[in-house]
């Protein structure tokens, strides 16, 4: 079953079309990377999928449940309950982490499951500690975000997203705010999640990583999907625009 199904997505900002009729499907256990130049619409696509932006038109469903439909060319969102159900399906990891600075690491991870999902505190704490151990941050549960490196903060934010047990996890350029060494930390964590068959959609500029970890890659440019295929085929693409974009990486290899 497709966890995420997005069809004919359209989005404009002040008359500038940022998404022009985009389709995106993600099956369970699949890892999809979205690459493309800045301003190509990849972050907007992710933000539309996570309700941080409102679609102008298109259809969106999570796990078969429609939450956005289009009537006479305009997107119509489902009621509050439908939206909440859809939002429980996914997690999102931000480029600049967006941890809550006034909460400790442990509270950042446990607060939403306890306060929002009303789950028993003890169980949530236990799971949070397991997640922290997995992220190699067991000794940091009482630290505050400002006491951590960027890489550590990003690992906490991944743990925070995972604590809500999403069926699909979105990453919006998770390493763009990090130096190369810290970037590797995060990429290792994402690879680990891929091994566990976590369904993920990753917007990234790390080409080699994307090629390594993805089942499928999407190349976007100027609001459209130029190519969508396996990493092997994308890196051997005959498409002019894809070759231009990937050219610089080929030169490096």
């Amino acid at each position: 079953m497709n966890i995420l199904e997005l069809q004919h997505a359209k989005k404009s900002f002040d008359g500038t079309e940022v998404l022009k009729d985009i389709d995106l499907h993600v099956a369970e256990g699949e890892v999809v990377s979205i690459i493309g130049p800045s301003g190509s619409g990849k972050s907007t696509l992710l933000r539309c999928c996570t309700f941080l932006e409102t679609l102008d038109a298109g259809e969106l469903s999570y796990e078969g449940n429609k939450v956005v439909t289009t009537v006479e060319g305009k997107a119509v969102y489902g009621n509050k309950k439908q939206q909440r159900e859809a939002m429980e399906c996914f997690g999102l990891v931000f480029q600049n982490f967006n941890l809550f600075p006034h909460y400790s690491v442990l509270k950042n991870i446990t607060d939403a499951p306890i306060r929002v999902k009303k789950r028993p505190a003890e169980e949530v704490m236990r799971e949070a500690r397991e997640l922290l151990a997995k992220m190699g941050l067991s000794d940091k549960e009482d630290a505050y975000p400002c006491q951590l490196s960027g890489g550590q903060q990003q690992r906490v934010s991944i743990a925070r997203a995972l604590a809500l047990k999403p069926d699909i996890l979105f990453f919006d350029e998770p390493t763009s705010a990090l130096d190369p060494e810290l970037t590797l930390e995060i990429l290792k964590v994402i690879k680990e999640l891929a091994k566990e068959k976590m369904t993920m959609v990753i917007v990234t500029h790390e080409m080699n990583f994307a090629r390594d970890v993805s089942d499928r890659m999407i190349f976007m440019d100027q609001g459209v999907i130029v190519e969508e295929t396996t990493p092997e085929l994308l890196f051997r693409s005959e498409n002019q625009r894809t070759r231009e974009f990937l050219g610089q990486y080929h030169d490096l290899l």
Partner: peptide
């Protein structure tokens, strides 16, 4: 980003504001 993180984690609007 603080509002966005809270929204994605499922906090209601009053929870987001007060907590």
């Amino acid at each position: 980003g603080q509002y966005e993180a809270a929204k994605v984690l499922g906090y209601s609007r009053p929870q987001t504001f007060f907590k």
